[in-house]
């Protein structure tokens, strides 16, 4: 154990923690932009600067030492942080009201904390160095005028997904996040998992046609057998979005393209809404009672005439345990073990 003095208060810390870790554990806010708890540290945005034992360091990378004295609110610290946030803002599209990340934007949060004022901003020159948009991917959009080159997407793609479809390209103020050959993201090896979109601190990577949910429900993905935890975003009676459940031990919040973006089928107009019965060769809507009466009649007829083994049922690897249990129970009740499913596919 070590003790670190932050702004005059002693805080207990473990060796190996960073100044940021310790500050956060003590409930002390330090603004960050390029830091993300899931990823390796980068130290590029320079807004988490603090003074540690008198020298200016990035809190996200500086390891603590026993007896270290950290100051987060000195004139020097505030000056560096404020200037760096202002500099980022000079190269950032500031149309916040219409931005999908409005109220959910790390840059807004940091600006508010640092107290960026119109008076100070008006002294600076606006330089939007890249106004391009990449709308090639159907699920999300890249808006370079909002990119702060924090590299969180680059590290996410490499460290979370392991694809490394994007990286830094060019130098200086032309620095941008690029696919190989600077092609649209759709033509790259991007797997559209959306992990970078999930982590982008600004509106540079946003889901297209975003609808903000009014409530959220935790559940499990219904595609492959990995069993990732999902949090469904719901508005009215519509599922409008999906994010990974960070508490789920299987995926720890990570999702693939299907899990994250493949939810449109739930509210699709093609959904079956009433039982159908084939009449004169065409399936026509009917009541539950009629449909079930017809089926139960057929079951009795076949069992009586041909015995229960004339019935066969395919249960489902897509349905719940409870559904499956009742399905096989029903068939075995009827006297047949002709129950199978597509476990082999």
């Amino acid at each position: 154990m070590a003790t670190v003095n932050i702004n005059g208060i002693d805080v207990k810390a473990r060796e190996g923690m960073t100044v940021l870790d310790v500050a956060q554990s003590a409930g002390i806010y330090i603004p960050t932009l390029c830091y993300h708890p899931d990823l390796s540290t980068f130290g590029g945005c320079r807004v988490c600067m603090v003074e540690a034992d008198g020298s200016a360091v990035t809190a996200c990378r500086a390891p603590i030492k026993d007896g270290m004295v950290v100051r987060t609110d000195t004139e020097r610290v505030n000056q560096m942080r404020r200037v760096n946030v202002e500099l980022i803002m000079t190269n950032h599209d500031q149309d916040c009201q219409t931005c999908a990340k409005n109220n959910n934007c790390k840059l807004q949060e940091v600006c508010a904390f640092e107290g960026i004022t119109p008076e100070r901003m008006s002294r600076l020159r606006r330089v939007i160095t890249n106004k391009e948009q990449d709308t090639s991917n159907p699920a999300f959009k890249r808006d370079f005028a909002k990119c702060i080159t924090c590299g969180i997407c680059v590290r996410t793609c490499e460290e979370i997904n392991g694809v490394a479809a994007i990286d830094f390209a060019f130098r200086g103020y032309k620095t941008t996040i690029s696919t190989i050959g600077n092609k649209p993201i759709l033509e790259s090896k991007c797997e559209s998992c959306g992990e970078c979109v999930e982590r982008c601190p600004t509106g540079a990577l946003v889901v297209k046609n975003q609808v903000v949910p009014e409530r959220e429900v935790r559940t499990i993905c219904s595609y492959c057998g990995v069993g990732c935890g999902l949090v469904l975003g719901v508005r009215g009676n519509r599922v409008v979005g999906v994010r990974g459940d960070r508490q789920n031990p299987v995926n720890q919040g990570h999702l693939c393209v299907k899990g994250r973006y493949g939810f449109g089928f739930i509210n699709h107009p093609d959904r079956l809404k009433a039982p159908l019965v084939k009449k004169n060769g065409t399936l026509t809507e009917t009541s539950w009672d009629e449909a079930l009466t017809l089926i139960s009649g057929k079951i009795k007829e076949f069992t009586d005439k041909h015995g229960p083994n004339s019935l066969a049922g395919l249960t489902s690897a897509r349905c719940t345990n409870e559904d499956n249990y009742l399905f096989q129970k029903l068939f075995r009740f009827l006297g047949t073990n002709n129950i199978d499913h597509c476990a082999r596919l």
Partner: peptide
Amino acid sequence: VVLPAAAFAEKTGTFVNTERRVQLINQA
């Protein structure tokens, strides 16, 4: 006869994943 069923987001129950992990699903 075709019977209209609820999708996963419309029901409760349990799924078991590839590592024999039983997990609850919730109606959204």
